[in-house]
C-alpha cells in the first residue's frame, strides 16, 4: 500500500536537479540535510541508510520541495513516510513514544486534564472530552497494513 500510496515509482524518475535541496530552509541552516540525496538513496535501494539517519527528523514538512519538484514527486510525504518506516524498524525518537501514549488515551496530541478544562471554563469556553478511545481502535485495525 505504501508504494502505491506514495507513488514511489515516480521517485525513480528523479534526475537529481536538486531543487528540493536548493529551496529547503533546513538545508540552508544544516547542510547535512539534503532531500535530493535521501531520494537518491531510497531510489537505489539503500533505504537502511535513510532510516538510520537523523536527517529524516529534520524535515519541517513545509511542502516546498513537493511543490517545486519537476517530476511531481511528493518529496515531503516520502520523507515523512521514511519516519514511519524508521519507527517500525526500531529507530523511535523519544518524543514519538510520548506522543503515541497521549494520542491513544486522549485522541489528541495534547492531553486535556481537569486543570485545562477549568481554565477553559474561566475563559468562557466549553469543556473538552478527556478521553477518546476510538484512536486506539484506529491504530489497532490500520497499523497492520503494509
Amino acid at each position: 500500500m505504501y508504494n502505491y500510496l506514495l507513488d514511489k515509482e515516480r521517485l525513480r524518475y528523479c534526475y537529481q536537479c536538486g531543487k528540493c535541496s536548493s529551496g529547503c530552509d533546513v538545508n540552508r541552516l544544516d547542510g547535512s540535510f539534503q532531500p535530493h540525496r535521501l531520494l537518491h538513496l531510497i531510489s537505489i535501494g539503500a533505504i537502511d541508510k535513510v532510516l538510520k539517519s537523523a536527517d529524516i527528523w529534520k524535515c519541517t514538512t513545509c511542502f516546498t520541495c513537493s511543490e517545486r519538484c519537476p517530476q511531481g514527486i511528493r518529496v515531503t510525504d516520502i520523507l515523512w513516510n521514511m519516519r514511519a518506516m524508521a519507527v517500525k524498524s526500531g529507530h523511535i525518537p523519544e518524543l514519538l513514544v510520548h506522543q503515541r501514549e497521549v494520542l491513544l488515551k486522549a485522541g489528541r496530541l495534547y492531553s486535556v486534564g481537569p486543570i485545562d478544562n477549568k481554565k477553559r471554563g474561566k475563559a468562557g469556553l466549553n469543556a473538552i472530552p478527556e478521553e477518546h478511545p476510538v484512536i486506539a481502535k484506529i491504530f489497532e485495525i490500520s497499523e497492520v497494513e503494509d
Partner: peptide, 12 residues
Amino acid sequence: DFSVFDTVAGER
C-alpha cells in the same frame, strides 16, 4: 538572489 544546491559538490 538565489540558492542552488550543487549536487556534484554536495554544497549549497
